[in-house]
Design a protein around this nucleic acid. Structure first.
Lengths: 217, 217
DNA sequence: GGATTAATGTGAAACAATTCACAAAACATA
DNA sequence: TATGTTTTGTGAATTGTTTCACATTAATCC
């Protein structure tokens, strides 16, 4: 097993996944060899950054030859467990949950939503193509499919409760779309995604930029 | 107009929006007064961090008295333009686009999707409740509603082209859900959101944590 | 009204991340 | 095989961010 001595940072991990996505695209475009500056260019970072990031995860290139797209991808996929499909569950089948359950890119990336859950009995019935389960069956499905990661897309008021239940049933990683930060034990990983915040920060950056610019008009 | 001498960082801006969301909840729960440690606790950061972040945006509290929820919110909303509704457009009405167009939390946060666009004529017709426009009408609508920010939820292959067109029509901020990083001029703000990456990074963190733990079993 | 307490605000210190600069390696060419 | 060129890999320098420590302020209590 590989050891990462340095405490690899959240930022470098994010970038690694970004590189991975870019590499998939490059490979599909028939690019067999990439250089640190190729990736840097597409990722909007410096070439040194790319090399440092790879170095942190003990990914080596070939001096003068750069990296072979295919073997770099293989190495990354083994390293980051993307060589196998991971079963996840999705809790909360509101608008966002329904979209996520149908989002085609997940399965392309080895993310398999094995089951979706909602407390609303109407939602449980309504979808013939994609069965929505009652939360009662959660434990059973988590056990059967060895699920450790859940996507939470429930309303803010139920988010904490749902997270607590999931953790009690063995879930160890949560991608949380509810606009609250759930409180979890240290052995559980949470990634909070707040769609409103993402848009608001752009709105603000734009309006600030316009103000600055208008000073020079 | 307020001046921010310090170059406020991306992280502190993200946290500011997080605090804002937390404050909205606290206010709705009837909390009239908050302290830096109240917010720190909910946001998962240190109290000093909260105070530094506020300080960076010239937001002042009352020594010993902390912050009054309502006036802090007012101040933030004026400062970050959340006291008015901002019109945005949404391009790409696939699964994700459709979910985003119906996502109730946007309007709660003053984000108004004034129009949605898709090249697929079938999608343009199909929705009686929520008209989907042909891209031909984009310029007209951008001008009419003074839109400067767009949400892009198109497939990866068309993302760059769509962004170019949007920028040509006056868009200055893009929230990009396509799994590519669009190349844009310096006067355009882009925020890339990659849902697969968010999930993959959790999957990896969990599997790494389990490996570490198994060493001690 | 002075003493006490509980909070903020912030410069300084510690820590983390990025960029720089260049040695080491691999390949090409003659 | 020697030489030149290109690219990686990484220690050192720089830059950025967070935490610490404490002076400052406001409220409360005798």
């Amino acid at each position: 097993m590989k050891q990462f001595t340095k405490h690899n940072t959240r930022n470098s991990l994010r970038r690694i996944f970004l590189y991975h996505g870019l590499l998939l695209r490059l490979k599909s475009m028939g690019v067999t060899r990439v250089f640190s500056y190729t990736l840097a260019e597409s990722a909007g970072v410096t070439p040194e950054q790319v090399r440092k990031d790879f170095s942190e995860y003990c990914i080596r290139g070939n001096r003068r030859g750069g990296y072979l797209t295919a073997s770099l991808l293989d190495e990354m996929e083994v390293l980051f467990r993307r060589d196998r499909v991971t079963n996840v569950i999705l809790v909360g089948m509101g608008n966002l949950g329904q979209a996520l359950s149908k989002y085609g890119l997940f399965i392309q990336r080895g993310i398999n939503i094995v089951a979706t859950f909602d407390i609303d009995p109407y939602k449980q019935k309504s979808r013939a193509d994609n069965q929505v389960y009652s939360p009662e069956r959660m434990q059973e499905i988590i056990d059967r499919f060895h699920v450790t990661v859940a996507i939470v897309a429930v309303p803010d008021v139920s988010a904490q409760e749902v997270c607590n239940e999931l953790i009690g049933m063995g879930i160890r990683g949560i991608v949380n779309f509810a606009p609250v930060l759930p409180r979890v034990p240290a052995y559980v990983v949470v990634n909070n995604v707040n769609l409103s915040d993402e848009i608001e920060s752009v709105i603000w950056s734009v309006s600030r930029m316009r103000e600055k610019q208008s000073l020079f008009l």
